[in-house]
Design a protein around this nucleic acid. Structure first.
Lengths: 167, 167
DNA sequence: GAATAATTCTTTAAGCTTCAAGTAACTTGG
DNA sequence: CCAAGTTACTTGAAGCTTAAAGAATTATTC
């Protein structure tokens, strides 16, 4: 029994194959690029991608940020950040101190060494990314930016809905 | 000293900011969606994303595939697959046997249980993905597919170049 | 046919990641 | 004030992931 599209009396198995294929392609692209960046960071600078990502967050702020901020921006768990920071403090790239106003809070920032090394890596990193996207025209880039922004919004809405949280 | 764009006598720091922002947005989208899918798989079926992904690969082929095939398709290391398969064999979702023609090769496939459970999960999974991409029009989806295909090609070229491998 | 090379997979060490539970510190409502 | 709730972070267990090295098997080359 199949009614017309307005009625929808029964649950028809709708076709979502296109969206699924899109998701798989998106995932493939990211995995591919991430792997390439990871291997170059390792070969060229002997640094891991998570370390680089964390340093990139810290490079954007001169006065440091809290572990929670880092966790939100990197979209990883708190416990993850704790471990990452511990290793970066150990290697002398990151400085960590307890906040003066709230003793629960840990404020971390790049050390002089950390910032200097990050800047060197970031410069090359940017050229790698440009190389990876080299076949895309400026118009392609703009269009992708637009569509991914829309995708991000859509995904965030779906995520909120499922967890029942406010934006 | 800045010469005209044809001459390029010195290395000017070119601007690749747009590509970098594009990459970060791509990564954000993927991380967001992956996290959402991971958490729903966990809550709804108590299964991890890597397990689901591996089973998805196996569901596509009736007669099983080798560990190397899985490794290439999932774009993860061999050692990774070894461990994943071990746990899936342990839980009764995957069957593993040595190839008759080549004793180095392990052929794995879904068990009856594995296939049944995967099918149930995959059905819901597909609706989640549709929900996540719900704001995109069919035209958006087509356009994203096209641009991501182009991106994939470009990234693959860059990856080959850096490793010096043939396609 | 034997030495050499390539492949398939496993193992190991280190690090990454999540989730859940726990601790300490701050905030709020009475 | 203070009890209850919230927030910030840490810890622990399990699993994921990679890179590198090793073992077993097959393919190649002379």
């Amino acid at each position: 029994m199949i009614l017309d599209s307005e009625t929808k009396a029964v649950e028809l198995p709708e076709d979502h194959g296109d969206e699924l294929r899109l998701w798989l392609r998106l995932l493939t692209c990211t995995t591919l690029i991430e792997g390439e960046v990871r291997s170059r960071l390792r070969e060229r600078f002997d640094v891991t991608l998570p370390r680089f990502d964390l340093m990139a967050q810290l490079d954007k702020v001169p006065d440091g940020m809290t572990l929670s901020d880092v966790s939100k921006r990197m979209m990883v768990s708190n416990g993850n950040v704790t471990g990452l920071v511990e290793r970066l403090v150990e290697s002398g790239h990151v400085d960590r101190r307890t906040s003066d106003t709230d003793r629960r809070v840990q404020v971390i920032r790049l050390t002089k060494l950390g910032r200097a090394e990050f800047r060197k890596m970031a410069e090359e990193h940017e050229t790698w990314i440009a190389e990876i996207f080299t076949d895309l025209t400026p118009k392609d880039v703009r269009e992708l930016m637009r569509l991914l922004a829309k995708t991000k919004g859509s995904a965030q809405k779906a995520a909120q809905k499922s967890t029942g949280k406010a934006p």
